[in-house]
């Protein structure tokens, strides 16, 4: 998972053709539709890479 649009695992179905209503919230706080430490960490890796300081990410 390099970008938020990449699926974290096969459970994530969001694409432009099969939209998921929770996609935006899911980017930073996800996964929302299932529970997985691993999938959450994948998202965290994306934000941590570019976050300038602790105030950078806004939920």
């Amino acid at each position: 998972m390099e970008r938020f649009i990449d699926p974290c695992c096969e459970k994530c179905i969001h694409t432009k053709d099969t939209p998921c209503k929770d996609f935006v919230d899911c980017c930073v706080e996800g996964p929302i539709c299932h529970e997985s430490q691993e999938c959450a960490q994948k998202r965290k890796n994306i934000t941590e890479k570019v976050a300038l300081d602790e105030n950078f990410v806004i939920c």
């Binding site: 935006v24 919230d25 980017c27 930073v28 570019v50 950078f56 990410v57 806004i58």
Partner: peptide, 12 residues
């Protein structure tokens, strides 16, 4: 980068 915009609370 759209990802960074989303991190900053974008599209919410």
């Amino acid at each position: 980068s759209i990802d960074e915009y989303i991190m900053r609370g974008g599209y919410r």
